[in-house]
Design a protein around this nucleic acid. Structure first.
Lengths: 134, 134
DNA sequence: CCTAAACCTTCCCATCATGGTAAGGTCAAT
DNA sequence: ATTGACCTTACCATGATGGGAAGGTTTAGG
């Protein structure tokens, strides 16, 4: 299978497949005489795994861990669960932070009339209003 | 005021102040004969505004909009509110997406024993388990 | 057999916001 | 005059991705 076929079948762009190889996330592909990369079903399987994990927001570092565990059929599920839980904590922290920003802004927006007049509590707050004693 | 003083007073690194100038987010600073940048209170005020908005997750593009509105004391508050609401929607969408990832993973992690045995539903799912008829 | 299209290869550049570092100029205090 | 703290520009790096150029390969059609 050529890289284009693998790309279509896995949903990962050829560009990214080469990048994953270059950075060692996946092993270097076999080459034909022409220099073309040549893949097999196991490569497709692995790349689909990578794609699924990326869709779930795992970083490439976490993917490296997951792939190591994925290759080792004898690793305890405890280790996999630990990586997953760590990632869950990161995701939830990021989500909370963003929602916090949204809530802060929402409160400001609610206090802004949003009409043709120029008075705007949003800009006043961003300017440091309330913290400035001048 | 030199750039270091402005940096301490605003909480924005000197590096980023130069970058903001280079990309046109803030106007080019006055220069002394030595070539040193020279700032005044208005610059500090503007940079604090920028810093507050960055803390709230506004992109530099949105900041450009906000600064334009901030400079124009006669703009209707409607325009400011529109930028804020747009950003709120973006933040909430990102937060929802991350929380969705977390929920998906949480369900997988809950079904994983996390013990010394190797059986792990998390990896099975990431491998495409359930979608593969093979 | 020749050509054109559709592949593939490597290499370089860009993103966005930020940090680091290096080589060199300036200023203030000792 | 020296030292140390400051400033300047210029370049490189991040992480994950896309874009494009310049050139080689393969395959199908005429």
């Amino acid at each position: 299978m050529q890289i284009g076929t693998l790309s279509s079948a896995s949903g990962v762009s050829a560009k990214m497949i080469r990048y994953y190889e270059e950075t060692g996330l996946i092993p270097a592909a076999d080459r034909r005489e022409s220099g073309y990369r040549d893949y097999g079903d196991n490569d497709l399987h692995r790349l689909r795994f990578v794609q699924r994990a990326r869709e779930l927001g795992f970083s490439m570092d976490q993917l490296r861990q997951l792939l190591r565990l994925w290759n080792d059929t004898n690793r305890p599920s405890r280790e996999v669960k630990a990586v997953a839980l760590e990632h869950i904590a990161e995701l939830e922290e990021k989500a909370r932070k963003l929602q916090g920003f949204a809530d802060t802004l929402r409160a400001l927006a609610d206090s802004c009339d949003g009409d043709e007049r120029s008075n705007c509590p949003i800009l006043v707050d961003l300017s440091g209003g309330g913290h400035c004693h001048k």
